[in-house]
């Protein structure tokens, strides 16, 4: 069979993903994690003096939750069930760091654990910082903050 024809056939015969089921699960799981985030945010709005500090504390708390659920071997099961519902929230970002560190723990603390913490999270941080810097610069200029 001609390779081109075969590639076409592979596409035609690929198992059909159950988009409705997967998106529903992602919606429910992502929604629940966001709702928990809202409760945490509410709490910090009460005790923190500024909204910015409440945001910072909320992100950190959610990251803590994600890290602990990873260590207990729960977060990968959430991901298997809810897909993007587990991957897209900031808890999934924490999961990517802790899971990498746990996997490479056996290769040593310096050559393994600590150097592999950023294997998956690294690009997210770099893009957040670089894009955030550029957009922050433009926005500050637009607001006339450098005058």
């Amino acid at each position: 069979m001609d390779p081109k024809r075969y590639r076409q056939l592979v596409q035609e015969r690929a198992p059909k993903p159950n988009v409705v089921r997967d998106a529903t699960r992602a919606f429910l799981l992502g929604g629940c994690i966001a709702l928990i985030g809202q409760f945490v945010f509410d709490y910090f709005r009460l005790i923190e003096p500024t909204r910015g500090e409440a945001v910072a504390a909320t992100l950190a708390t959610m990251i803590f939750f994600g890290a602990v659920l990873t260590a207990f071997g729960v977060y990968d099961k959430l991901g298997e069930w809810g897909g993007a519902g587990a991957a897209i929230p900031i808890t999934g970002f924490a999961n990517s760091m802790v899971s990498s560190a746990m996997d490479f723990r056996r290769d040593g603390i310096i050559t393994g654990l600590t150097s592999k913490l950023f294997v998956i999270a690294g690009p997210v941080i770099v893009f957040a910082v670089v894009v955030g810097f550029i957009v922050g610069l433009l926005r500050s200029a637009f607001l006339g903050l450098f005058a």
Binding site: L35, Q38, A56, T58, V124, G136, R139, S140
Partner: peptide, 25 residues
Amino acid sequence: AGGGALVPVSGFGSSVVAGVVQEVR
């Protein structure tokens, strides 16, 4: 939407910009 916007990683990117503007100020 509170946590609904803050918790997805897009909230993380947004917070970087918010912090930059706050500090430039």
